[in-house]
Computed example of a mutant assay.
Amino acid sequence: MDWVLWGGVALVVLYGISVYNGLVTFRTRVNQAFADIDVQLKQRHDLIPNLIETVKGYVVHERGTLEAVVETRNAALRAQGPADQAAAENALSGALGRLVALGEAYPDLKASANFQQLQTDLAEIEDKLAAARRFFNNGVAEYNAAIQHFPAVIFAGLMGFRQQVFFDVGETQRQALETPPKVAF
């Protein structure tokens, strides 16, 4: 009888270890996917000063737009976690959209090879960022499902596994992302 009891305890412990390892794997994927988003955001943030400097030489009366881009970029750099970063990046995307739209109002700027290259670089980064967000959100969905499945749900809470938040770009950005960014020359 003791062997049966110890055998049952051993099976429960082994199953707990298996569940824990599986959940750690899912959590690690989510963390890696978030780091991938961070890399793309850093590239985007690094591109912005070049874009501002290029635009600054052509647009004299658009100081408010330039300041808005700088301010939202700084807010995006300070944001922590998926929810805060998504909100900050939404604001930055709007400001960047206004900045890039200046190219239409200033033909000399639109014709600038440097501005055109920066627009192309920005469009490429936005595409990579969208892919990184999809990968992250997929990882979050798998992780959240894994910690909710029975009997893993029993162990997950006890072992400190909590729901993760999706990187939500908001409804306005979602609609904008459905159509790829256009680079007009």
Rank of each mutant, 00 (worst) to 15 (best):
F135P: 02
H45D: 08
G170A: 09
E124T: 15
E53L: 01
G64M: 06
G64S: 14
P180G: 14
G139R: 03
D38T: 05
L96G: 02
A145N: 14
R174E: 12
R73W: 07
S112E: 08
E104N: 13
V69W: 00
R162Q: 10
F135R: 09
V70M: 05
R98V: 12
A145P: 01
S93C: 05
T179C: 00
R98N: 14
G103I: 12
R78G: 12
R78W: 02
A79Q: 00
E67N: 03
L109P: 04
N74M: 00
Y15W: 12
G94Y: 08
G16C: 12
Q116L: 11
R63F: 06
A91F: 04
I52K: 11
R134Y: 05
L41S: 02
T120L: 14
T28L: 04
L14W: 02
A101Q: 10
N114I: 10
D36N: 09
Q163D: 15
K56N: 14
F150K: 04
M1W: 15
V69G: 02
T28H: 03
L14F: 11
N74I: 08
R174S: 13
S18W: 14
P180A: 15
F155G: 01
R133K: 09
T120N: 08
Q163P: 04
A79P: 00
P181W: 03
G22I: 13
L5N: 10
F136S: 08
Q173K: 03
Q173I: 02
I37K: 05
E171I: 05
P49Q: 02
M1F: 14
K182F: 08
Q85R: 08
F185Q: 11
I17M: 11
A123P: 03
L99D: 02
R44N: 09
G94N: 13
R44D: 07
V140L: 06
P49S: 06
G97R: 06
I48R: 02
V70K: 01
H61L: 11
L99E: 00
V30R: 11
P107Y: 02
A87V: 14
I147H: 06
G97M: 06
A88T: 02
V55H: 08
A132C: 03
